[in-house]
Design a binder for these strands. Structure first.
Length: 269
DNA sequence: AGTGGCCCCTGGCGGC
DNA sequence: TGCCGCCAGGGGCCAC
C-alpha cells in the first residue's frame, strides 16, 4: 500500500499500537528475499526506539544506532498484534517481541526490509518531502523548469518529490488541471502554484482519511487490518469511461511512463 | 537527461 | 465452470 498517505498511516498505527520500546526476541523469516541485506537473527536483542517516515520508507531507528528501513512496494503492509495471533499465509517476516509481534505481510513479495548503519545512503537519494515547510510553490516551479520529462513521469520519480505514486500523481494533476503528458518545463508559475496546492491538499486529506484502500476488502491492499477511507474521494484514478466530475467529458485512460494514467482531456490541457 | 523494455511475484478479474 | 491473458498502489537495471 504504498504511497505517502498509506505509509504515513502505517507509521502512525505502529507508534500507537506499541511498535516502540520492546526488545526483539526472535525473527521468523518466511521469505528470505524480503530481507535485502541481512539475516533476521541480527535483529534479536534490539529495540525499536523511534518510528518515522521518509518518502515511502518506514524508518525504524534501533537503539543500537542502526536503522531498519521498510519499503512496502506494491502490496506490503505491517501489523502489530498479540504474539499468539494466527499467522497470515502472506506474512513474509515476523518480528517477535515479548507479548506482541510485528508482521510484514506482502503477497507479491516486492517489499524489502533493509538493515543499515548508514540510513542516509538510502534516504538522501530521495527528493523533497512534499509536506515539509521547505516545499513551496516557487521552489516547485524552479524544480520543474529544469526538467524536460512528462509531468506524470516526473511526479512518480522519488528523487524529485518523495512519496507520490500512481494514484496521487493522477489525482494532483487532475486537481491542478495539468495534462500528464505536458513537459515539466512548460509549466508556468501559476500552474506550478496550482500543482503545489494540489499536492499538499490532497496528500493531507488522504492522510486524514487514513489513505486509499483499493480492491474488494479481502485485505490484499488494506493496511493494519483497517481500510483507508480515501478511495471514495478519488476523482480520476480508475474512473476511465466515467464523466469528469468537473465538465462531464469522458475520462480517458492512457499509458505514460509505463504506468496507467487517468485524465480528463477537456480539463487537463 | 530522458525513454522504453524487462524483471521481480502473486492474485483477481474479464472474456471466451 | 475452466482456462488465459491482462492488469496491478513500486522501483531497479540496462540499452539506446
Amino acid at each position: 500500500m504504498p504511497e505517502l498517505p498509506e505509509v504515513e498511516t502505517t507509521c502512525r498505527d505502529l507508534k500507537q499500537n506499541g511498535g516502540v520500546n520492546q526488545i526483539i526476541k526472535s525473527v521468523d523469516v518466511l521469505w528470505p528475499k524480503s530481507l535485502s541485506n541481512f539475516e533476521g537473527a541480527r535483529l534479536i536483542g534490539a529495540t525499536i526506539s523511534h518510528i518515522s517516515r521518509r518518502g515511502k520508507y518506514i524508518v525504524l531507528t534501533l537503539d543500537s544506532g542502526a536503522t531498519l528501513l521498510i519499503h512496502l512496494r506494491m502490496t506490503g503492509s505491517l501489523r502489530i498484534e498479540p504474539i499468539e495471533s494466527e499467522m497470515d499465509p502472506y506474512d513474509r517476516v515476523v518480528i517477535n517481541f515479548e507479548n506482541q509481534k510485528l508482521a510484514f505481510r506482502d503477497p507479491r513479495k516486492f517489499g524489502r526490509l533493509t538493515l543499515t548503519e548508514e540510513a542516509a545512503v538510502y534516504l538522501d537519494k530521495l527528493g523533497i518531502e512534499p509536506l515539509s515547510a521547505a516545499f513551496t510553490a516557487p521552489l516547485l516551479f524552479e524544480m520543474l523548469q529544469k526538467k524536460h520529462k512528462q509531468l506524470k513521469a516526473l511526479l512518480l520519480e522519488q528523487s524529485f518529490i518523495a512519496g507520490l505514486g500512481n494514484i496521487y500523481a493522477d489525482e494532483v494533476l487532475f486537481a491542478a488541471r495539468l495534462n500528464p503528458m505536458r513537459t515539466a518545463a512548460s509549466v508556468t508559475l501559476e500552474e506550478a502554484t496550482l500543482l503545489h496546492t494540489a499536492i499538499v491538499t490532497i496528500l493531507t486529506q488522504a492522510i486524514e482519511n487514513r489513505g486509499t484502500s483499493l480492491g474488494d476488502g479481502k485485505g490484499n491492499y488494506s493496511s493494519n487490518g483497517k481500510r483507508g477511507g480515501h478511495a471514495a474521494r478519488l476523482k480520476i484514478f480508475r474512473k476511465q469511461g466515467q464523466p469528469c466530475p468537473v465538465c462531464g467529458t469522458k475520462i480517458e485512460k492512457i499509458v505514460v511512463a509505463q504506468r496507467s494514467t487517468h485524465f480528463c482531456p477537456e480539463c487537463q490541457k
